Structure formats: structure tokens, C-alpha cells
Computed example of a mutant assay.
Amino acid sequence: MILCAGESLIDMVPEDGAFRPLAGGAVYNTTVALGRLGEPTAYLWPISRDPFGEILLRPLIEAGVNTDLCPRSDRLTTLALVTLTGGEARYSFYDEGSAGRMLSQNDIPELPGDVQAIFAGGISLVPDPCGGAIESLIQRNHHRLPVMLDPNIRPFFITDPDSYRARLNRLLPMADIVKLSADDFEWLFPALDLADAARKVLQMGPRIVLQTGGAAGAHAYWAGETVNAPAVRVTVADTIGAGDTFNAGVLASLRRQGVLSKDGIAGITADQLRSALTLGAQAAAVTVSRAGANPPWASEMPA
């Protein structure tokens, strides 16, 4: 079972001059995508008892995600107002004192024995106490479980860049797989080109660094020659949830290939990496072809 730990929120998406509430959040989207792809998945994040919390629970349950590790909270759900510019999503967050924001290290449980990997990232890594809680989860378990990390950096959400960089400098060496977009690399290493920035991250300890670039496809940097997979050409409705769905496709492929373990990732081959990138790109293509973060079900994927 793949455990996803990180934010869920409500995306207030523009529609006919108003806003439509849709379940979202980077880690949440990856969780739902994994469940829809038929992968055994669990979620760890507080869910509010407010009406928005019910909106968040429904897709998790429909996708078959285990929510036993999701404490219910009387605090409010995080809201993200979405604006679209040329199909690209931009966000404004309403998060102070929210259910997820107040997750603490004391709320992190011992993990069930059937958890075989951890996925984390998103804005849940930025503020405390929730950032410290996710860091604690990874610190406690990374020696025995493979960790995939996608910081999904949102500069406008980061009020203390130095503190956030320090957290990433602690987390990246504990991750086995790190996924970064071109924008993420630009924020982390503005003086380096993408390839050099990816190698810089590799030097910090991860086995694999994945770089996504929309229509430019995806690239995997690792101990061997760089592995590439082209983007799947579709008519783009918007890009909400694209990278999150890509993450789910990668994790699903690695698990299906039997390499989602510490030893499996250490011994991965170029063909296995290419298969993972390809499934990630195929899944992301479905998501961008329709409005909002609406990842594909297994039946919608190529045979």
C-alpha cells in the first residue's frame, strides 16, 4: 500500500463569473489518482467536519482510498482561489488555523505494516506545525520505506524562504525519488540550467530525480544516462492536477513492476524508469484534457 501524506483543500475554480468548489491539493490529487488507477492507497491528513470536508472525503472513498489515518477536525478546510491565465493555474490560499495546517508531530501514528512506500510534498511542507509533522513522518520511516517527494513549490505561499530551504535541505537527502518541475528548479537553483540543477539534487542523496516540463515531456536523472519520455499530445483544458497525476502514474508503474522498494529503486533499470515516466505522462494527459483536477480511472488508460 502506498501512503500519501499531505494537503487536501478546496479549489475555488472560476466558472461563469463565480467560483465552483472542487476537491484538490497536490498530495490529495495524487492520492485520488492512485486510487482511481487501482493501486492500494492510504491517505494521512486531517479532514474537517465542515461541509467542505465531506466534499474531500467523497472522491477518496469512491477511489477506494483507505482513510483510517485521517483524523477528523472541527477546524476549517483550507481554501485555494484559482485563477487561470492562458490555461495555467495560479492560487491564493486561505489557510490560517485550518484543519490540515494544525497537524502536529504528535498526530503522526505508527504506520501499518502493509505500507510499502510514502509519497509527500506540496504546500504541506511549508508552514508549521504541519510541515514539521510531515518531516517527522519521513524522518521516522525513510530508512525502511522508499520515499517519493514532490515539493511542488508555490513561492507566494512561502513567507520564510530560508526556513523552507532548510527544511528541503533536510528532506531531500531522505527521499529516494524527487519530482521537480522547471519552475521548482528555477526557485531552488536559479543560476543553474535544468540538467545541472537535477544533478545537484542527486548529489544530495536521492536515487532518482524526475523533471517535468509539460509539452516538453519528462526526464529522469539517475546513475545512468538520462531517461526521457515525450508528453502525450492532447487538447489542454487546464493544467490543474497534471503534475500530481504524473506522480501517481510513476508510483503505480513502479509498484506494478515490482521495484517500489528500497532495493528495487537502487537496482532500477533504464527501461523500468522509462515505463514509469510513460505511465505518468499518459495519466497526466487525461487530466489536462478536462477541467480541474480530475485524474483518470484505470479503465480510461491505454491498454
Rank of each mutant, 00 (worst) to 15 (best):
R255E: 07
D11S: 03
T85D: 13
P302D: 13
T67Y: 05
R290A: 05
A216C: 03
R199N: 15
Y164S: 11
G87Q: 06
K200S: 13
L202H: 14
F19R: 12
A266V: 04
L22F: 02
T67R: 10
R274T: 10
L125E: 09
L180C: 10
V227S: 00
R233H: 09
E225A: 06
R75A: 12
V32P: 04
D263V: 13
N66H: 11
T212S: 05
A166S: 15
T235L: 12
P302H: 12
Q211V: 15
G38R: 00
W45C: 12
D128G: 12
A229C: 08
A223G: 06
A198S: 13
D193Q: 10
G64L: 07
A252I: 06
I134F: 09
T30S: 14
E96N: 12
G87F: 10
I118E: 03
A298I: 09
Q139T: 13
L79F: 09
A33D: 00
R290P: 10
L3E: 00
L79P: 02
V288W: 07
A5N: 03
M301L: 15
L137W: 03
G25M: 04
D150T: 08
E88C: 00
A270D: 15
G24F: 01
P14D: 06
L279E: 13
S98W: 09
V259S: 08
E15M: 02
A198V: 07
S73M: 10
I177W: 07
S261R: 08
G53R: 03
G86W: 08
Q272D: 13
G217I: 00
G243R: 00
N141A: 10
Q139I: 03
E110R: 14
N29D: 01
T85M: 10
G6I: 05
S299H: 09
M1L: 00
T278S: 13
R233W: 01
E54V: 00
D74R: 09
S48G: 14
G113W: 11
E88G: 00
T226D: 09
A270K: 11
Q116D: 12
P40D: 09
A120F: 12
A182W: 04
T212N: 01
L210Y: 07
V126Y: 05
E110N: 15
E54S: 06
M204E: 11
R58A: 11
G53I: 11
G35I: 04
A133S: 07
W222I: 10
L84H: 06
L172T: 07
N152C: 07
I240D: 04
L277I: 11
D74A: 06
L192D: 14
A218Q: 01
